[in-house]
C-alpha cells in the first residue's frame, strides 16, 4: 500500500482528499464565475473569452481531464466516507436534536449530488447543446486579423437561454445549492487540513462563508439579470 493509498483509506485522509479536491474545485468555481461575469461587458468580451479557451487546443483537454479527475476523486471519496459513516450508526434516535450543526453541514451529500446533477445538465445544455439545440447552435461573424470568421456566439446562447424562465429557475436553485455546499465546505476544509487557532479561525469561517454567498450570488445574478432585462441587451430575441 502506498502512502497515498494509506492516507486516503483512513477517515482523516479521505477528508484531506475531500479538502484538497474541494480547494481545486473551488478555484474552478471562482474562475468560471470570473468568465461568466464577462456577460456584463457584452457580447464581444464573452465571445473573445470563449474563443480564447477553445484556442488552447490540447491544453484545454489537459485542463478538462485534470478537472474531471479531481471531480471524480471528490465524488469517490465522498461515497467512501458516506459508506463508512452510514455503517457507523445503523439505528438512529427516536428523538433527535441538533445543537450547533448548520443546515449546510447536514446536507452536504444531498447538495453535492444536486450540484453533480446540475453539472451534467449544464454540460448538456451549454457545452454540448443536447438539451436546447436551437439556442446552442448560434454563431456570429467577426473580423479577425482582417479575415472574417464565424465563431460560436456564446453570448447569444446564454442570453437566449436565460430568457426562458424554466432554465432560470433550474440555474438559480442549483446555484443556491452550490452556495450551501460551499458555505460548509470552504470553512470546513481548513479544519480538515489542521488550520485552526482560536485567534483567527472565527475570521476564516466568516470570510469563507462570505465567499460562498458571494459566489452563489454572482452566479445567480446572470440568469436573473437576463430574465429581468438588467443585462443581455445586446442579445437578439
Amino acid at each position: 500500500m502506498s502512502r497515498f493509498q494509506r492516507l486516503l483509506a483512513s477517515s482523516i485522509g479521505a477528508k484531506v482528499g475531500m479538502a484538497v479536491t474541494g480547494i481545486l474545485l473551488s478555484f474552478f468555481v471562482i474562475g468560471h464565475l470570473m468568465g461568466n461575469l464577462l456577460v456584463y461587458q457584452g457580447r464581444q468580451a464573452v465571445n473573445d473569452y470563449a474563443a480564447f479557451l477553445k484556442g488552447l487546443g490540447p491544453w484545454l483537454w489537459v485542463v478538462r481531464a485534470g478537472l474531471l479527475s479531481v471531480f471524480v476523486l471528490h465524488i469517490v471519496l465522498a461515497i467512501q466516507l458516506k459508506r463508512r459513516n452510514r455503517a457507523a450508526r445503523t439505528v438512529g434516535y427516536a428523538k433527535d436534536h441538533v445543537n450547533v450543526a448548520t443546515v449546510a453541514s447536514r446536507y452536504m451529500v444531498l447538495t453535492g449530488m444536486c450540484v453533480l446533477a446540475f453539472v451534467l445538465l449544464h454540460l448538456a445544455h451549454f457545452t454540448l447543446g443536447w438539451i436546447d439545440p436551437a439556442t446552442h447552435a448560434v454563431t456570429e461573424k467577426v473580423i479577425q486579423g482582417g479575415v472574417e470568421i464565424e465563431r460560436h456566439d456564446v453570448y447569444q446562447m446564454v442570453v437566449a437561454g436565460f430568457r426562458q424562465p424554466v432554465y432560470v429557475v433550474i440555474y438559480v436553485v442549483a446555484m443556491v445549492l452550490l452556495g450551501t455546499h460551499l458555505f460548509h465546505g470552504l470553512q470546513s476544509l481548513f479544519q480538515t487540513l489542521g488550520v485552526r487557532h482560536p485567534g483567527y479561525t472565527p475570521t476564516i469561517v466568516r470570510v469563507c462563508r462570505l465567499v460562498a454567498v458571494a459566489l452563489s450570488a454572482g452566479y445567480i445574478s446572470i440568469p436573473v439579470g437576463v430574465l429581468l432585462g438588467l443585462t443581455g441587451a445586446e442579445g437578439a430575441s
Binding site: S11, K15, R89, V100, A101, M108, Q191, L193
Partner: peptide
C-alpha cells in the same frame, strides 16, 4: 467509528467542553 464531518456537535455536548482544536491538531 465514522469520519469527522466538522459539525462540532461533539464539542457542543462534551461534558468537559473539550475543544475541536484537538481534532485539527490530529488531522494535521
Amino acid at each position: 467509528f465514522g469520519a469527522c464531518t466538522n459539525q462540532y456537535e461533539c464539542e457542543a455536548v462534551c461534558p468537559k467542553e473539550i475543544s475541536v482544536t484537538s481534532i485539527a491538531m490530529l488531522n494535521k
